[in-house]
């Protein structure tokens, strides 16, 4: 048990270091430590699952050790910039004011084809229209075109935009969500009134949502 504990501590640290060295392009969507945890936990769980002769403990101890280390490291990286930089790295600018920073491309080992591919995914064909392209710590590329090449927002176009509210689900698949009634500031009488208007019952409703502006979305159960 102590041996698997110590081994997990070392393997976890080594895996994070290796993933960090592999660079952002290997990760995509996840931070290095999250990727390591996902990879490790899945594999650790499968060994005692498949091998009946191996006690459950040999899988549980490393999984709990990984959990403990992850909780400690995530807290330290939240509190300390140095730890965060060490564990997650820092964003790298690949395009600045329309210029591709070739040195940063080499450093992150992102090829020109990959860069242009990412830009095409964001509907950008002309590299010169990009003011900034930043490779984030999770491997995603954030792209900011020049303001003149960006679609105008409602504010920029001077169009008055409607206010948006988060709809709250009141009935889901024939079940009344009592907790959500309070969140939406409604009561059972309001539900009965709405259902009466729609000539429906709770069990006959597939979806009923309402937002702060009292916009109701109703779907009957088929």
């Amino acid at each position: 048990m102590i041996v698997s504990y110590l081994r997990t501590v070392v393997l976890y640290s080594v895996l994070i270091a290796v993933i960090r060295m592999m660079g952002k392009r290997q990760i995509g969507q996840m931070e290095p430590s999250e990727f390591v945890v996902t990879m490790l936990v899945a594999n650790l769980a499968s060994i005692p699952m498949q091998e009946e002769g191996i006690p459950l403990f040999t899988g549980l101890v490393p999984i709990l050790t990984v959990l403990g280390m992850e909780l400690i490291l995530s807290f330290l990286s939240m509190k300390n910039m140095g730890v965060r930089k060490l564990l997650c790295g820092k964003p790298v600018i690949l395009i600045e004011n329309g210029n591709i920073l070739q040195q940063n491309l080499r450093k992150t080992r992102v090829t020109l084809d990959e860069l242009t591919g990412h830009l095409r995914e964001k509907d950008i064909l002309d590299l010169r229209s990009v003011q900034f392209a930043i490779l984030e710590t999770n491997g995603n590329l954030s792209v900011f075109p020049y303001p003149k090449d960006r679609p105008a927002s409602a504010a920029e176009a001077g169009i008055p935009a409607k206010k948006q509210f988060l709809p709250v689900t009141i009935i889901s698949d024939g079940k009344l969500m009592e907790g959500n009634l309070q969140v939406a500031g409604k009561d059972r009488a309001w539900v009965d009134r709405v259902l009466k208007e729609k000539h429906a019952s709770v069990s006959g409703t597939w979806l009923l949502t309402v937002d702060k502006a009292d916009h109701i979305l109703f779907y009957r159960k088929e």
């Binding site: 102590i2 504990y5 959990l67 403990g68 909780l71 995530s74 807290f75």
Partner: peptide
């Protein structure tokens, strides 16, 4: 903060148990 101390506690517990 609670999770951090839970993590520290877990690591100490596992070490002691080991």
């Amino acid at each position: 903060m609670g999770r951090f101390w839970f993590g520290v506690g877990l690591m100490i517990l596992l070490l002691a148990l080991g």
